[in-house]
Simulated assay, not measured.
Amino acid sequence: MTEPQVSPLEPMPDDWRRALAVVAHPDDLEYGCSAAIAAWTDGGREVTYVLATRGEAGIDTLDPARCGPLREQEQQASAAVVGVSTVEFLNHQDGVIEYGVPLRRDIAAAIRRHRPELVITLNHRDTWGGVAWNTPDHVAVGRATLDAAGDAGNRWIFPELAAQGLQPWNGVRWVAVAGSSTPTHAVDATPGLERAIHSLLEHRTYIEVLTDEDPETYVRTFLTGTAQSLSPRFDGKPAVAFELFAR
């Protein structure tokens, strides 16, 4: 039998200067695409992180009042490893984020505030492909980010934002979805992979309750394996993949 053909991944666009990454939790970007972010910041591009929650419900053995500030600190340190200095939190409640107008408004405000050309988010579909079920927070934030990219440019949607000094921004050219089971584009992971490993390791409190493995072994195996699995579709190079929606 002939092997099924897999479509090649196209290189991500590189004619942009500012990106905004919007995800639900601390560590979402580190599991998904921080090797690409490291390469982008190395090239002089500006990347800002916006997180809907502080991940306060993510560790069973830690009360949310203690867990949230700890995970916020780990996220700040993690972002710094890959050249990101601005990390904002929208203060939605971890685990019960609701897709809807308030979430769209908060993300549209962030887009107007930072005026990116590229917006990055995480898989907004029900599964990771097959029967691996996604979490409601990822679905809500990913879907709201795709919608907010349009909301941010429409002066008649959320006019109260303009009254707060956040004028419409219709400059988003693409929304890139990490963790998609149907990616279309990719970035060479090689230049940023080592920093991506160290970036994810900053989430040590979370990782140590997630696995009994040595944290560095776990992180290195996971990120290297994911990047290498995409190499047949990206000219033999380990990659970070995205599903790219042009606007």
Score class of each variant (00 low, 15 high):
T2H: 04
P8T: 06
P8L: 06
E10Q: 10
P11S: 12
P11V: 09
P13A: 14
D14C: 05
D15E: 14
R18L: 00
R18Q: 02
R18N: 01
V22T: 05
V23M: 10
H25K: 09
H25V: 08
H25S: 08
D28R: 07
C33E: 11
S34N: 14
A35D: 11
A38K: 06
A38L: 04
W40E: 13
W40F: 10
G43W: 00
G44K: 02
V50W: 00
L51P: 01
L51T: 06
A52Q: 13
A52V: 13
R54V: 09
R54E: 15
A57R: 12
D60M: 12
D60R: 13
T61A: 14
R66S: 08
C67I: 12
R71P: 05
R71M: 05
R71K: 10
Q73A: 15
E74L: 11
E74S: 12
Q75E: 13
Q75P: 10
S78V: 08
A79Y: 02
V84S: 00
V84G: 01
S85L: 05
V87N: 03
V87G: 03
F89A: 09
F89Y: 15
L90S: 06
H92C: 07
Q93G: 09
Q93N: 15
G95Y: 06
G95C: 12
V96F: 02
I97G: 01
G100C: 15
L103H: 04
L103T: 14
D106I: 05
A109C: 09
A109M: 09
I111A: 06
I111W: 00
I111N: 01
R112P: 03
R115P: 00
L122Q: 04
N123I: 11
H124R: 10
R125M: 10
D126K: 12
T127C: 11
W128G: 10
W128K: 08
A132K: 04
A132P: 00
A132G: 02
W133G: 02
N134C: 07
T135P: 00
D137S: 04
G142S: 06
G142K: 02
G142P: 12
A144R: 02
D147H: 05
D147F: 00
A148D: 14
A148Q: 13
G153E: 12
N154Q: 11
N154G: 05
R155W: 15
W156H: 14
I157V: 15
I157M: 11
F158D: 06
A162G: 07
G165F: 02
G165H: 06
G165T: 05
G171P: 02
G171N: 09
W174L: 01
W174Y: 11
V177G: 05
A178H: 08
G179W: 11
P183L: 09
H185D: 13
A186C: 12
D188P: 07
A189I: 08
A189D: 08
G192F: 03
R195S: 13
R195T: 08
A196M: 10
A196F: 04
L200Q: 11
L201N: 09
R204W: 02
R204I: 13
T205C: 12
I207Q: 10
I207G: 03
T211N: 02
D212P: 11
T217E: 14
Y218K: 09
V219M: 04
R220P: 09
T221K: 13
F222Y: 15
T224D: 06
T224E: 15
T224K: 10
Q228C: 13
Q228D: 15
Q228P: 04
S229A: 15
L230F: 12
R233K: 10
G236D: 07
K237W: 01
A239H: 04
F242S: 07
F245C: 12
